[in-house]
Design a binder for these strands. Structure first.
Lengths: 208, 208
DNA sequence: TCGCTATTGGCACTTAGTGTCATTATTGTG
DNA sequence: CACAATAATGACACTAAGTGCCAATAGCGA
């Protein structure tokens, strides 16, 4: 029917932005430079992203946020560990995935030195929280707005954020990126640890 | 020896900013307007605050963040509930405190409609988390950087944030502000619920 | 191929925010 | 009280982030 934004357009800008931020810092990277590096006009850059800092949001979305998105496919009748065991092919990542992982790990590890990036990072955590609220509400047949659901989603998302931060800092410090399996394992543990509701195990659907 | 910034200067700007944000929205409030309402120059406004949105941070600091600050005075040998019971005079608030509470409640209740204020709100939660990490590390004689401390502080701070949000939305919806006692009670409960470490009860100092 | 629709880029513009410097106000000391 | 030292303040020029507008362009389906 009509023209659409090219697949991958946003993530490509995010990669350019991330490289520049890591190389020269956020403050010393201009919107002009990001647009040029990404091969788009400045006007389009500001259409794609609300602020300079939020240019890296697509990369932050590859963290626990993506994990939470996948939990949207979690059947009611198995535990979180079992779901991950069955569903995740931990075979070798593509080259592009490796590069994206390295970029996001370095961004997260450097958050203390770049507080300007805390906003997009928190926006990512907030999305994780919304996604987890959906998962929890669905499994326990509760409303998305239920206080207990919101509380549980918040503690779980916070725990997942700490895992991401801890793993990223260690990766940069020790020069090695943990495997996807290891990260998923830690995230699953974090979910159990931080849960204020019993949603990690198989649940029986309630008759309607 | 030399001139200092007047006590209350920041909170007064925050009040002006909050009133304007609530009245006309963040986007339609200019830095000029905030500075004028606060009786300072624009140059000084930008000395006081890093961004327009962060002008309300002093008000957000009056929430669970302040509660966490007070927990810094919590003796090792009593539980969190006991500490609050002994230490908090829930007598009538001053007029200014009431006004500040109303402002911050309305800001928090309106966060869904004003995503621009999420950044200062998250910065407040982050400070709460740092404060709680200090409390937890101190009570359990662990390092501030310990993973378990960080995890526990993150889940607790997230839970406290949810309480603040829930209470604020209810207050605006039902037109009544809960008492300070009620809020403190809920925050204490949230701390217990979300804790991944046993720091809420009396602890025995370890011999050094 | 064509019509429709959304995307894009160029450009003018506004606002948020920074650098600079002279002026002003606070503070401590004699 | 006077004075010196110091930091805060305001005015102004400026830059960069971000917005509005409109013509040109490109993608999509029939």
């Amino acid at each position: 029917m009509s023209r659409t934004i090219r697949d991958g357009a946003h993530i490509e800008v995010a990669r350019s932005a991330a490289r520049l931020f890591l190389k020269k810092g956020v403050a010393d990277t201009s919107g002009d430079e990001i647009a040029e590096a990404a091969g788009i006009s400045k006007r389009t850059l500001w259409r794609y992203f609300r602020t300079k800092e939020s240019c890296v949001e697509p990369l932050f979305a590859l963290t626990s946020q993506r994990f939470a998105t996948r939990l949207g496919n979690w059947p009611l009748d198995i535990s979180v560990e079992r779901f991950l065991e069955i569903n995740y092919d931990f075979s070798k990542m593509e080259k592009q995935e490796l590069e994206d992982s390295a970029l996001v790990v370095h961004l997260i590890a450097g958050l203390e030195e770049e507080p300007a990036l805390l906003e997009p990072w928190f926006m990512s955590t907030r999305m994780t929280e919304e996604l987890m609220a959906g998962v929890i509400a669905s499994r326990l047949d509760l409303s998305l707005k239920d206080f207990e659901v919101r509380l549980c989603a918040a503690t779980v998302a916070a725990a997942m954020r700490i895992i991401d931060e801890t793993v990223s800092r260690a990766a940069v410090k020790y020069g090695q990126v943990p495997t996807l399996a290891e990260i998923n394992d830690r995230l699953a543990q974090a979910i159990r640890r931080a849960s204020t509701l019993p949603f990690c195990d198989p649940v029986t659907p309630r008759p309607r």
